[in-house]
Amino acid sequence: MSTDTEPSAADGSAEATDDAEAANASGAVDEQPTEAELRDRIAELEDTVASLEADANDGTTKLTIVATQGSFDMAYPPLILASTAAAFGWDVVVFHTFWGLDILHEEKSDDLKLSAIGNPNMPMPNALAALPGMDRLATRMMENKIDDNGTATIDELIELSLDQGVDLQACQMTIDLMGYDEDDFHDGVTVGVGAATALQHMAESDVQLLV
């Protein structure tokens, strides 16, 4: 912005700037603020600090996770973090979109698959992994491991999360896109929400994760 604009009747801001500069100059050089003014200013700042502190301590920690993946292995991280955060007393929202919807889908959540092909952690070459039934086999192997390890099932984690007040949300646009019905989801799942809702929760959150 130009600083050498001629002050004019139409340009109040330029005059205001000049006035402020003049006030600053005279304040810095000639007049020290009085003790009363300083006391008032300190009291004002103390009030501001107290109100900021109250805001900071008042709000519980909030976590928002965006879950976009619907494979068996990718269903775990958001659910484990969400249910554990709830045990910390955090306010938790998980926004499920695209394939992440399948985690909340009553029928599909029991049938999520681990992909054998293109998965470098699988002890088989891609040529074998591409054969029919390999995803099912890989999923079965993982399910057995999970059972042996005493790890909770996906259904258990969903129920635990809902019981603890986690807000599991199903993105409306992708419900429509995937041809799902709002009744297809576990009881307690929030439907009728979109990107704006997710962003609002993210903005209010202390921790945001995209899974």
């Binding site: 484990i80 249910s83 554990t84 045990a87 910390f88 390890n149 790890t151 909770a152 603890q164």
Partner: peptide, 12 residues
């Protein structure tokens, strides 16, 4: 016999 995150969640 239960593994993460169950001990924490059950404790809570």
């Amino acid at each position: 016999g239960a593994s993460c995150p169950m001990p924490v969640i059950k404790t809570k």
